[in-house]
Amino acid sequence: MIQTLFGSLDEEKKPSFVELMKEAVSRTRESLSERLEDVVSIGKEIDRSTLDDLEAILISADLGMATTEEVLQKLRHKADRKQIRDISELKKLIKAELFAILTTTGSRPITKVNGTPEVIMVVGVNGAGKTTSIGKLAQTFRSQGKTVLLCAADTFRAAAIEQLEIWGQRTGTEVIKTKPGGDPSAVLFDALQSATARGTDYVIVDTAGRLHTKQNLMLELEKMKRTAQRIVPGAPHETLLVMDATTGQNGLQQARQFTQSAGVTGIVLTKLDGTAKGGVVVAITRELGLPVRFVGVGEKVGDLLPFDAHDFVESLFN
């Protein structure tokens, strides 16, 4: 299970995880801290106008207006009463607010029937990094000695199947596929049947990238979900929404629509090794209660890290 996976990975590679995580968000951290210093110049009293400037900082991290407002509203009361004395206190308060938002999500226990595979469906808009994330995820499971089957249900995009197959070879994982243009539900059916027969631990399903506004494509996801349920009770146990860290406020709409159609249970935040902040996940967690499960920090097979809210917020500000 993914929850238990968090713990075990943490123990095994603790130093490298923290380091990588820090490295991944260091840029965000630097720019945020820098600007915080700008805003709160030494000796200047922290008041409302300081907080107004702060608004711009949070917005530039893609947190969005509503979330920014919520965080600032709480700080404003304190600033009015002159309860915030210096910058470190201000940082601490912002951190606490962000952390509170990111951790209010209850992790949903996975109900899985013994002897059947855990099915993880991976969805998202075009170019978010679904296939790459699946390759990395497969590697994570493989390194734990689990058996994994990949299901190439992106039968639409040119060479998507080939791309997944290369990841299959890299991670020593078999790929169940059909011909391009085939029915995604049919290949899912095949994959789940053979996984059940073989007693495979995990099936990771790659789906075609789709914009959340395309009604018919969203219906296709619903159909795939129904197909999965028919063969493996309770499947898909996880539906991961892959989101590019550069995504702006449209990410919220993506999360809403995919949750409605595909029942998203968690987020994979990719491309966090750039300068993008990925702050939209705070807005998503705040509104939809979806936890961030993993972060993608590079193109190598090991560049997928379990998300830890504490570390995430800490590395932003420390």
């Binding site: 990410g251 750039g274 902040k277």
Partner: peptide, 12 residues
């Protein structure tokens, strides 16, 4: 560039 890009668009 992706139309959905947020604030980071200026940096890249």
């Amino acid at each position: 560039a992706d139309a959905m890009t947020g604030q980071d668009a200026v940096n890249s």
